[in-house]
């Protein structure tokens, strides 16, 4: 039986959540203050994932980069690999917030979308 501790990152409160893990299985978690925190802790103890935010190149006379995000969290260990896929993207305005930039990144089923409007 092992005790594991983490700080919840769902919101800025930063609850300390404790887990009891037995034979690789999550037995008990405590210390969370909301359902989202409980779900996050469950996942964080078993398969941690993160929303990826980054920028991609865009040809515009106002800015050089367009901010983007993953629509869903990506496995934590794939974040750096995903950056190489984004490095190959080059766009031109106009862009709309939420516009699809890269579909199914690293075959994760997760898309990359723009996070701002950018006019020509």
């Amino acid at each position: 039986m092992a005790e594991k501790k983490l700080i919840c990152v769902i919101c800025p409160v930063g609850c300390e959540i404790m887990a009891t893990i037995e034979n690789g299985e999550l037995k008990k978690i405590k210390g969370y203050r909301c359902e989202q925190g409980r779900d996050y802790a469950r996942e964080e103890f078993t398969s941690p994932s993160r929303i990826l935010t980054a920028t991609v190149r865009i040809k515009s006379n106002r800015v050089g980069q367009l901010p983007v995000r993953s629509t869903e969290p990506l496995p934590r260990e794939k974040l750096e690999e995903a950056m190489f896929s984004l490095a190959r993207v080059k766009l031109e305005p106009p862009i709309k917030e939420g516009q699809l930039i890269l579909k199914d990144i690293l075959k994760t089923g997760v898309d990359i979308v723009a996070t701002r409007d950018l006019e020509k």
Partner: peptide
């Protein structure tokens, strides 16, 4: 506009936005 990371809006909108999305 330059805070491209997420974590904005959790308290005000009850959803997680990036800086540019919050500004938008």
């Amino acid at each position: 506009n330059q805070c491209i990371h997420n974590g904005f809006g959790l308290q005000y909108f009850s959803e997680e936005l990036t800086g540019p999305e919050y500004a938008g």
